[in-house]
């Protein structure tokens, strides 16, 4: 098996000021190649004005089997949401 090629995650910014959006991945042996490959693969129709590529294995993600432990404890803290609080009638701008 050949080695050396890396997978890169590609993020496109449609225009300046907008957030970068993940669009998929591409291959590349080095950074310059990765960003050029991303350009040719994901912006042939003027889809963006800026690009990021990040090596896929540089991304840290929550292990699938730990998702409950990570996220469930956040679900019952309803006092973190504005709708939790009762405001007397007639009081505005809160």
């Amino acid at each position: 098996m050949e080695s050396g090629v890396k997978v890169w995650e590609v993020f496109v910014q449609k225009k300046s000021g907008l957030p970068f959006k993940h669009v998929g991945s591409c291959h590349g042996y080095d950074k310059k190649m990765a960003i050029q490959n991303a350009r040719d693969l994901y912006t042939r129709r003027g889809e963006g004005r800026e690009l990021w590529v990040v090596e896929s294995n540089a991304i840290v993600s929550v292990p699938l089997d730990e998702a409950d432990a990570f996220f469930d404890p956040g679900e019952d803290k309803i006092y973190r949401h504005a709708t939790f609080y009762k405001i007397p009638e007639g009081v505005n701008h809160l």
Binding site: V5, C26, H27, G28, M33, Q36, N37, D40, L41, R44
Partner: peptide, 11 residues
Amino acid sequence: PFLEEDIALSN
């Protein structure tokens, strides 16, 4: 040599 480069040369 690989698909990405194919697209680059076509471009």
